[in-house]
Design a protein around this nucleic acid. Structure first.
Lengths: 191, 191
DNA sequence: GACCCTATGTTTACAGCGTTCACTTTAACC
DNA sequence: GGTTAAAGTGAACGCTGTAAACATAGGGTC
């Protein structure tokens, strides 16, 4: 999704925006990642702070672009995880585990993804993680209203668990994730 | 929990700490509240920024103290809500609704309460909201391990719902809260 | 009642932040 | 090949949290 030129110069043509996003993601990724400042990213890319404003109206826009990248990544990892167990009800449960694993693996990025005020929207096509969720629940529950409730409940519990673990309220323990996201005990009406 | 003197002066004696916390809470409370800066609070209280450092080692310590106040408030509101419906299983469900309602009523405060790194601890006695939770689940589930799982699941779903609503991912709708936190469908093994 | 000590405040200063403005460079086009 | 618009620079502003040196006031002791 991001392409950076190999030439060390010529930022003067086209790729500053992507270079900034790449620098931002690499600052955010990893368990020790933290939200980078605008000036920090400009430095990392070898450009003056104000150059950033040629590509983003303000810091918030930069953050939103980074959040969008994060959402794509999350959706991707979830889809892969679900595919690995063969989809269906097991795949649904797996997307939940992948969600929490993603949050724990990229805490700063995950936080950024959800702190941007409005939900992020790529021009036209929406959040892939969310699309996956609604597709899964529609397949599991017959009634569409039941499906939506199930989707939001599943999302809430995964998100809450992720947040509470990130915030140090609940030990970030793999076995605990397993126990908490047991769909059979949680949502007995489905699957 | 916080007491502020009525005299407009004499901060030189005793109450700057409490005055700062009061100013902080009033900045945080309300739907439009935002996290106040240290200097902002110093200004509000009529004191130089560095005076704050006589009472808190750094900004983070001030934030933690504010978070602690928030946790007390939350626990209080939950207990009241549960008492109003007469405790028991209905009371348990009510604490969940109160949790989400609190988050929506005081977004900035709620965020602050959970972004302080380590869980907050008042010297000795712990988070009242959490005590209420474990007491409730122990009463509902016989097996203590089942009770703990239930507690963490209930916490996660309430917290996740609150966060997703605060972040604009899910409409902050009262009827939706009701539907999402329906304990009978969520945790059929209990109550 | 004078004295000193400690708690609590002030002033000044520094580096970093996001952002604005005026200016310069550069690549592309007729 | 000169013009123009896009994409960069540099200096500056007000904000932030924080450190260091200094001022002041109140309480306890002689």
């Amino acid at each position: 999704m991001i392409t950076v030129s190999t030439s060390n110069e010529a930022y003067h043509h086209g790729n500053l925006r992507d270079a900034l996003l790449a620098a931002g993601l690499s600052a955010l990724e990893g368990a020790e990642g933290k939200a980078p400042s605008l000036r920090e990213l400009a430095r990392a890319v070898g450009v003056s702070p104000t150059a950033v404003y040629r590509h983003f109206p303000d810091k918030h826009a930069l953050d939103k672009a980074l959040a969008l990248e994060g959402l794509q990544l999350l959706g991707q990892e979830q889809a892969e995880a679900a595919a690995k167990v063969g989809g269906g009800s097991a795949g649904f449960a797996e997307t939940g585990r992948a969600y929490v694993r993603f949050a724990l693996a990229h805490p700063a990025l995950f936080r950024l993804m959800f702190t941007q005020g409005e939900p992020i929207e790529h021009a036209g096509h929406a959040d892939p993680a969310r699309e996956l969720l609604t597709a899964n629940t529609r397949a599991l529950a017959g009634d569409p209203e039941k499906a939506e409730t199930l989707a939001l409940q599943a999302w809430s519990i995964a998100h809450g668990l992720a947040m509470l673990m990130l915030d140090g309220r609940i030990p970030a323990d793999d076995a605990l994730i397993e126990r908490m996201l047991d769909t059979r005990s949680l949502f007995p009406q489905s699957g």
